[in-house]
């Protein structure tokens, strides 16, 4: 069925989410910050190369930017809501874990401990 999807931001990278069965719904969308990881789309490949990159909001970013990103996301929210904020990792299934581990490490350093591995809901085998 055709429906409207409100896009939060324009993706400059390709993402095919992995499938999982034990998924939970993500609650309170306003408290979720998205981190995208994947190979840059062909039109951006000349600028950013073909290795998987991180996208925060609208821009392709580096690992060091995550700290500032989390800080700015926190600033935008009410102080009482900060402990409930979730970082949703939307990562392409063919990405290597190295970059994901680095992101997890910087999220730990930034005290953003609640994370969510975004997946498609798959069928039970």
């Amino acid at each position: 069925m055709v429906t409207t999807v409100m896009r939060e931001n324009e993706l400059k990278i390709k993402i095919t989410l992995p499938q999982a069965t034990e998924v939970k719904k993500l609650e309170k969308k306003s408290l979720v910050s998205y981190i995208y990881v994947g190979e840059p789309r062909p039109m951006y490949a000349a600028k950013f190369g073909s290795e998987p990159r991180i996208q925060l909001n609208d821009a392709i970013s580096d690992l060091v930017d995550i700290r500032d990103f989390i800080a700015s996301e926190r600033e935008a929210r009410d102080e009482a809501e900060v402990p409930f904020m979730t970082a949703s990792l939307k990562v392409d299934e063919n990405t290597k874990m190295g970059i994901v581990s680095d992101i997890k490490q910087s999220l730990r350093d930034a005290q953003a401990l609640k994370i969510n591995y975004s997946t498609r809901k798959g069928t039970k085998k």
Binding site: M1, V2, T3, T4, V5, M6, A20, E22, V23, K24, K25, L26, K29, V32, T86, S88, K104, L107, R108, D109, Q111, A112, L113, K114, I115, N116, Y117, S118, T119, R120, K121
Partner: peptide, 19 residues
Amino acid sequence: LVATTMDIDTGLARMLPPP
């Protein structure tokens, strides 16, 4: 029909250990 969003985010929730 057209204006309904059906974009429900799902995923595996995890807690990272504190630094």
